[in-house]
Each structure stands twice: as structure tokens, then as C-alpha cells.
Design a binder for these strands. Structure first.
Length: 769
DNA sequence: TCTATGGCGCTTTTT
DNA sequence: GCGCCATAGA
């Protein structure tokens, strides 16, 4: 049998063969990185005799961890199960559950997510900043605390680095915040890393045990790690020195959350005896796609020296589409998809629509639904962010960790039990005075001062309820227990019996949570409540996505990292959208935006479409947009421009005196003849679509994956069939031409009026002529 | 104590 | 254009 590594190209092979000592692998986009790592690990186990349990692999997402494990299992079989693969956060959580007590962390600690963190910071601000008239934003402060923790700075350390009054306040909040988290036996995301480092730095025996056990360490996406993560790897790998890191500085896109590209660039000086391997052959994209991606990234100054190349086909030109507005952009994107799917050239699962911010997903979702295309949205309005779900989880968190007073506050009066702010304050005073938890204070409510008998009884009842539930936690399978909690707390009943339909739909969300618990219990060996809560805290949006292969994927550019799709649409390529407004005044952040653009483009295998809109609704008002600077970097010979509207604009006529005074129109006028031609183009697309809709009618309802979005029935445009190109008259704006029509229960037409501009108008307000 | 209303600020990106 | 928060009223 030929050696495992014969399956690799020469560079990949080198990367896989060097198993001892520090190794830095620069793996360009689409260079077969996962394949190389899979073979590397299989080779270590199979041919070098490395015991599987001595290997630790760190990936960026849980999904990537699962995939790596699966692929290795394909080469070495069941032994792969013993491999420890996970994200930094999940690995640290596991270490701290097992060993954290050595530094005072109880094993049942709760993980606070961003919303929990914000609640603590807000409390801190109201306590510390109560009388001052300066107000600081909680998110800004939180950001600073997070940065400090990523830099491994505790409150004292942070004090030394602080500069302005904001830091002064942040440092005071930080101190308060830490005290509250500890009192509630809670850790935030950053603590998972920081406190693991603290554990390893202060408890030598723990460090040694881990170093002896984990003799081979592999870190993926090394360009996106922060200082705490860097230190962690340094500690764990400190004895064996077998540290293999993989990354691509051109794909570093998490600087905003403390990641530091400098870390990967400094690896060679950190480990002077390290071997460096570059994987530069791309197997994913066409020559043209790579050329365009290179056009964008080459403008960044600080890059490691490398250049991606490919043997793949030249491919089609990259399409750059100029849309009228965001709605027409979505219309175009989805028409192209519909057309290609109908012609049998592609399946919905081949497509990804990538955007800069989650808020942009909406138009695309609407249009996909309208066209009967199945889709899956990654991220955005998250299931676990819904208030009901957070409440339900708060119950579970209190049961799992009775010290968690923040979660307790959330639920103590939900459903209403007559425990309001006043009662709570009295209980809180008692808890502080007696140095007990808030839950214990409920149990000793008779000692609290200034409470009515009714309030005391309510607090005692609540305490009794939580005690009873806590006693049952290990007696029943997880999904049963979750149901019991929701039942006996009265929470589920209160919603199920509600007269309000939105509350009944919340009850359904709770049902969904029970399903999630059931699935979790099915798949996991450890299906304890605390394992469940940890899982929920540490899975990412992308981990939850299950149907990216069979549906049109909608996701942010950030979420797309590490993925690939045959056909990619990058949308909203406009100044202030992408590059984002908040990045535009900082050259470093601009470089990161550019890398993000590069990451997006290199996701595409066969075909890449880039689009931008002339105008877009931002915060509810219409704005004129300029094409993104990234588009200007593309070589003309590799792109094909479509939908160009510039020539449609005529110079504005001079303002009348009256208009000057009122500051009113004119703006640029639109060339009606040219627009008509454009509208006809849309019309033929629309006609094509109607044929297509006939074919898929019936399979339309319930295509969308995201719950909570009411599915629309398949009406196309109401009784009056307005289509693109129809000439209409409006009593105020005069004559115009329909550009597109949409149906949200009411038919809304986008109409171009030569004198007035483009307006959205109810179909009922115009006459066809 | 709970609920309805209006004002205001806001969106990067996520483990 | 929407969701959160503060405020006022029942």
C-alpha cells in the first residue's frame, strides 16, 4: 500500500511530514489546508506511532472541529474519537471544569454571554456613575474590559495602562464587574481563556500534567488569535515544543475582537528553529476569481511574502452588477439564481450570498421566499437571543448554579409572582448583609426587612420551587427535565394560554428548546444540564447551520471564513457599507476590510458575482451610495459590468427660485428611454420567473429555514398585474414606468418618474395607461 | 406592580 | 425602521 502522504502535493507533503518541533504553515485560501492537516494527523498516528490522546487540535469553530475529526476518522477509523479537537473556548471550559477549583473556580460555573455581560456592566454603571452626568456606553466599556482580558490584564494591570477618563471609568467598572462575576460563580468568554492561563501559570502541577499528556499541538487559523490564546499555546507546548500552527495573514479578520496578525508574523522569531512551509497552490477557484482577489489584497502593505496560483480553468469573468437600490439588487441576485437553477446548471445549495452586516439579509430573504428558493440564514436574529429562550435558560442556569443571581433576577418574577423591584431590593440587601446568595435570601425571606407578608410568602414559594427542581436535575433525562422546569414554574402555561398570539408563538419557541435538548441528549455522551448549558454558550451561528449544502446560504463575510461555495454573490459593495463606515478613518481597520473582501472573494469556486446599489435605505432613510473602492481595484479584463445605470442619469435642470428657497428638487433626472430598455430586461426576467414559479408551485411554503418569519403565499402581484416596464400614471408624480413589483400582502411598485426620481408606491395609487 | 406609550439611538463583524 | 428603555398611568 502506498504511503498516506502520496495523496499530497510536494508542499503539502512537507507540511505533513514534519511532526516534531515548531512548524509554521502558511496556507493560502483554497490550498487544501484541511486535507493537509487531516493527512498530517493520520500520518502521525498511523506511521509515526503517536498515541492519539497526545494530540490537541484547536480550530476556530466547533463545526470545523467536527469536520476535522470526521475526516481523520475516514483515514484512521474509530481511534479518531480519542482525539481532542475543539475551539479555544471549549477546550478552556473543559480544563477549568476539571481543574479550576485550584484557583477558586467552582466546577459548575456559568458562562455569561454578551447580554449577561452587558447587564452586569449596566448595573455597575448605575451604581458607580449614579450621580455623575457623564454617561458612558455599556458596550464601549465592555469592549475595553474585553480587550484588557485578551491582553491578560487584570484590574491592577489595566490601571497601569489607562489613559483617559473613559479608561478611568472602565477600570472602576472592571473592578465591580469582576467582583460580581465571582460572586455569581460566572465566567465570561474572555475569562475562559484568561483564567486558564492563570491556572497554568500559577499551578505548576496542573501545567505539567497537561504538558505531559498533550505532546502535539496543532492550531488552525493562527492569524486570528489574541494574546491570551497565544500565551495558552506557549504554555501548553512549552515542554514538547511540538507546536504546529496554520494560518494566512491575508485572512486575518478578527482584529476588532483582539486578534493580532502580528502573532503569526512573529512566529519565526518566537521559535527560531521553526520550519516554515507555504501552501500556494489553490485548488478551489478559477484563474479569474483569484486574479480579482489578488487585485484587492495586493494593496495591503503588511503582508507575508507569498502568491497564490492555480492550475484551474480561467473561468468566466467576474460579474459586477450595478443596481438601482437594495431591493432591485436582491431581485437581480435571486433572478440569476432562479434562472440557473431552472436551467439545471446549479442547485440551490451551490450558492452563497455574502454581506457585510446581518441587517442586509432581509431583502434577500424576502426575494428568495418569493421565488420559492430554499435558503438558510446563518446568524442574525438568533433563536437564543429571544427573550423567552433567555428566560428559560435563566431557569436552567440557576438550577445548575444557584449562585447565579443575575439569571435569578431575570426569572424571579416571570411569570408574575408579585415579587417586584422593592421586594427584590430587600432580598438583595439581606443577601449582602448575610453574605449569602440571592436564592438563599429568598429562602430566608422572613429575615428581610420591610416586606409584606405576601411578598415574603412569594419569595419562599419561589425558593421552594427552585429547590425542588434542583433536587430532580439528575433524576430525569435532560429533555424531560427541561419540560418539567418550564411546566412547574408556570412559565409555559402562562404563555400557552395567552390570548396574545405572539405569546403563544413564544410557547412554541419553548417547545423548540425542548427539541434542542432532546437532540443534544441523543448525540452526546454527557447530556447533563451543565454540559447542555455549556454547549449552548459556546456554539456559534455557523455551528448551528445544518443545510448549507442543500440551500442558498445567506451569511456575513465573517461567518463565511473557512467555507467554500461553487457560486458566490457578494452584495452591497458600496462605500460606507463595505468598507464599513466605522472602519474608514483608520488605515489598519481599512486593511482589515480589504482582507475581509479577499476572504469573501476566495470562497468562490466557479463563479463570483459582485453587486452594489445606487441608493440604499439606511436607518429608514434613503441614501445615495458610491461604489466600493474595492471594485476600482479590479482589472477590467477580468470583469464584466452589468446593469450600468450611470448613463441613465441626465444632468439636473437648474433649480427654480422657489425650489432654491425650499431646498427641494431637482436631483439628477433619469433618461426615460434608457430606463425603459432596462425595465424590459427586468420584465423578461420576471416572465421567465413566472414560468419557473409554475414549476415549483406547491413546494413553496416553508422553504425558509429561519423560524418566526411568516411565509407568504405565492401571489405574484395582485389583481392588477403590474410588471416591470408597465407605464403608469400617479396623480401627484405624473407619468412613470414600473421598475419592479413586490407583494407584501399589498402590491408595492417601484416606479421611476422622470421628473421626480424612483419611488415606492402602492399599486392601488396608480393607473396603468 | 404591571402595562402602554413615546422618544431615542442605533448596526459592524462573534467565540 | 425597529427595538429598547424610561416614564406615566391603571
Amino acid at each position: 500500500m502506498a504511503g498516506l502522504l502520496d495523496q499530497l502535493n510536494p508542499q503539502q507533503r512537507v507540511a505533513a511530514e514534519i511532526t516534531e518541533g515548531p512548524v509554521l504553515i502558511f496556507a493560502g485560501a483554497g490550498s487544501g489546508k484541511t486535507r493537509t492537516l487531516t493527512y498530517r494527523l493520520a500520518h502521525m498516528v498511523r506511521e509515526k506511532g503517536v498515541p492519539v490522546e497526545q494530540i490537541l487540535a484547536v480550530t476556530f469553530t466547533n463545526k470545523a472541529a467536527g469536520e476535522l475529526k470526521e475526516r481523520i476518522a475516514g483515514l484512521i477509523g474509530d481511534e479518531a474519537k480519542k482525539l481532542w479537537v475543539g475551539t479555544f473556548h471549549s477546550i478552556c471550559a473543559r480544563i477549568l471544569r476539571q481543574e479550576g477549583e485550584a484557583i477558586g473556580i467552582p466546577p459548575n460555573f456559568t458562562i455569561y454571554d454578551e447580554a449577561d455581560q452587558a447587564a452586569v456592566v449596566k448595573e455597575a454603571l448605575s451604581v458607580l456613575d449614579g450621580d455623575s452626568d457623564e454617561s458612558y456606553s455599556a458596550s464601549e466599556i465592555l469592549n475595553r474590559i474585553s480587550r484588557a482580558k485578551n491582553e491578560l490584564l487584570d484590574v491592577q494591570g489595566y490601571r497601569r495602562t489607562r489613559k483617559g477618563p473613559m479608561d478611568e471609568m472602565a477600570q472602576r467598572v472592571y473592578a465591580y464587574y469582576e467582583q460580581r462575576l465571582r460572586a455569581n460563580a460566572a465566567l465570561d468568554f474572555d475569562d475562559l481563556l484568561m483564567r486558564t492561563v492563570e491556572l497554568l501559570e500559577t499551578k505548576r502541577s496542573v501545567l505539567q500534567r497537561l504538558q505531559d499528556r498533550l505532546r502535539y499541538i496543532l492550531v488552525d487559523e493562527y492569524q486570528d488569535i489574541n494574546h491570551a490564546q497565544y500565551r495558552l499555546i506557549q504554555l501548553l507546548g512549552g515542554k514538547s515544543g511540538n507546536i504546529c500552527v496554520v494560518g494566512d495573514d491575508d485572512q486575518s479578520i478578527y482584529g476588532w475582537r483582539g486578534a493580532n496578525v502580528g502573532i503569526i508574523l512573529a512566529f519565526e522569531s518566537d521559535y527560531p528553529n521553526c520550519k516554515v512551509v507555504k501552501l500556494e497552490q489553490n485548488y478551489r477557484s478559477t484563474k479569474r476569481i483569484l486574479a480579482c482577489a489578488h487585485d484587492v489584497i495586493r494593496r495591503n502593505a503588511a503582508r507575508a511574502d507569498k502568491r497564490l496560483w492555480t492550475d484551474n480553468h480561467e473561468g468566466d469573468k467576474v460579474v459586477v452588477y450595478q443596481a438601482l437600490n437594495e431591493e432591485e439588487e436582491a431581485e437581480w441576485v435571486t433572478s440569476v439564481i432562479r434562472g440557473q437553477v431552472n436551467s439545471g446548471n446549479a442547485r440551490p445549495g451551490d450558492y452563497a450570498i455574502l454581506y457585510r452586516t446581518n441587517a442586509m439579509s432581509r431583502q434577500f430573504e424576502d426575494k428568495l421566499l418569493e421565488k420559492g428558493l430554499p435558503y438558510e440564514i446563518v446568524g442574525g436574529l438568533r433563536f437564543y437571543d429571544r427573550a423567552v429562550i433567555r428566560d428559560a435558560l435563566a431557569y436552567l442556569k440557576v438550577i445548575s448554579n444557584p449562585a447565579d443571581g443575575f439569571s435569578l433576577r431575570r426569572i424571579i418574577n416571570r411569570p408574575a409572582r408579585g415579587i417586584g423591584a422593592k421586594t427584590l431590593a430587600a432580598l438583595d440587601r439581606l443577601a449582602r448583609r448575610e453574605n449569602i446568595t440571592l436564592l438563599e435570601a429568598c429562602g430566608r425571606a422572613q429575615e428581610a426587612e420591610g416586606l409584606t407578608d405576601r411578598a415574603r410568602a412569594a419569595a419562599l414559594d419561589f425558593h421552594h420551587l427552585m429547590r425542588r427542581l434542583a433536587d430532580q436535575v439528575d433524576q430525569k433525562p435532560l429533555p424531560h427535565f427541561v419540560r418539567d422546569v418550564l411546566d412547574s414554574s408556570g412559565y409555559l402555561a402562562a404563555l400557552t394560554n395567552s390570548e396574545k398570539s405572539d405569546e403563544r408563538s413564544q410557547a412554541e419557541d419553548l417547545g423548540e428548546l425542548i427539541t434542542v435538548a432532546a437532540k443534544f441528549a441523543e448525540r452526546r455522551e454527557d447530556s447533563s444540564l451543565s454540559a447542555f448549558l455549556e454547549h449552548l454558550a459556546l456554539i456559534s451561528d455557523i455551528d448551528r447551520a445544518e443545510n448549507l449544502d442543500s440551500r442558498v446560504s445567506l451569511l456575513t463575510l465573517h461567518s463565511a471564513k473557512g467555507l467554500e461555495f461553487p457560486i458566490v454573490f457578494m452584495v452591497g459593495l458600496e462605500e460606507e457599507v463595505f468598507p464599513h463606515r466605522r472602519s474608514m478613518d483608520d488605515p489598519f481597520e481599512l486593511e482589515e476590510e480589504r482582507r475581509l473582501c479577499y476572504v469573501g472573494m476566495t470562497r468562490a469556486e466557479r463563479m463570483l458575482y459582485l453587486s452594489y446599489a445606487n441608493s440604499r435605505t439606511v436607518f429608514g432613510s434613503r441614501q445615495r451610495q458610491q461604489p466600493s473602492r474595492f471594485l476600482k481595484d479590479l482589472s477590467p479584463e477580468h470583469i464584466e459590468r452589468r446593469g450600468d445605470l450611470e448613463h441613465l442619469l441626465l444632468p439636473p435642470r437648474p433649480k427654480t427660485e422657489d425650489e432654491v428657497l425650499r431646498g427641494g428638487p431637482p436631483r439628477s433626472r433619469i433618461d426615460l428611454t434608457a430606463l425603459l430598455a432596462r425595465a424590459k430586461e427586468n420584465q423578461s426576467i420576471a416572465a421567465e420567473r413566472q414560468v419557473a414559479e409554475g414549476a415549483v408551485a406547491g413546494s413553496r411554503a416553508g422553504n425558509g429555514q429561519r423560524t418566526g418569519h411568516g411565509g407568504k403565499a405565492g401571489s405574484v402581484s395582485g389583481e392588477k398585474r403590474f410588471r416591470a416596464g408597465t407605464k403608469v400614471t400617479h396623480k401627484k408624480f405624473g407619468q412613470g414606468i414600473v421598475v419592479s413589483a413586490s407583494d407584501d400582502g399589498e402590491v408595492v411598485l417601484t416606479i421611476a418618474f422622470p421628473q421626480v426620481g424612483v419611488k415606492k408606491i402602492l399599486a392601488s395609487a396608480v393607473e396603468a395607461r
